[in-house]
């Protein structure tokens, strides 16, 4: 009796173990064939966005802003590399929307928006926590 039970539990355990193993295997989307045009465009969009973000991070006033926040610009730059494609595209959009304003008012607004974007980046990278909606580490990321 006891032996049959043990056998039964062993079988269940084995089945469970197999089920878990299968569930935890990465889902491999790869199949032989043509890579679709939409995917190619998305990939190059992401690459462009990363270039925009990188050149933004390389700007002197951004580095100053990061330093003022106590963030090592080099460390920030290397963390930017971990952004997802979607995050990079989002961020690049915000950077490109920065007003290139002339004159005193434009400069002030420009500085405020610059700080806004820098804070957004440092939030995304986990240096600061100003904007709730970035929240990278959440169990329910969006």
């Amino acid at each position: 009796m006891l032996q049959t039970q043990t056998k039964f539990f062993r079988r269940v355990a084995l089945a469970l173990a197999m089920a878990f193993t299968m569930a935890s295997l990465p889902i491999v989307p790869a199949s032989a064939g043509m890579i679709a045009t939409d995917q190619i465009i998305t990939q190059s969009q992401a690459a462009e966005a990363r270039a925009v973000v990188d050149s933004f991070m390389a700007r002197d006033e951004v580095k100053q802003e990061l330093q003022a926040l106590g963030v090592d610009p080099a460390e920030a730059e290397s963390r930017v590399g971990t952004l997802s494609d979607a995050e990079a595209v989002d961020l690049a959009q915000k950077i490109q929307d920065l007003p290139a304003g002339q004159g005193a008012i434009g400069a002030i607004v420009g500085a405020a928006v610059l700080i806004f974007v820098v804070l957004l980046i440092t939030d995304l990278l986990g240096f600061t926590s100003v904007f709730g909606f970035t929240n990278k580490g959440s169990a329910n990321p969006s």
């Binding site: 002030i108 607004v109 806004f116 904007f131 709730g132 909606f133």
Partner: peptide
Amino acid sequence: LRLVWAMGALVAALLLGGCAGTP
């Protein structure tokens, strides 16, 4: 709480927009 933050950011953005005039 996050909503409050988001609202704050929104108000800030609106104020910034208001200051901007017609650049």
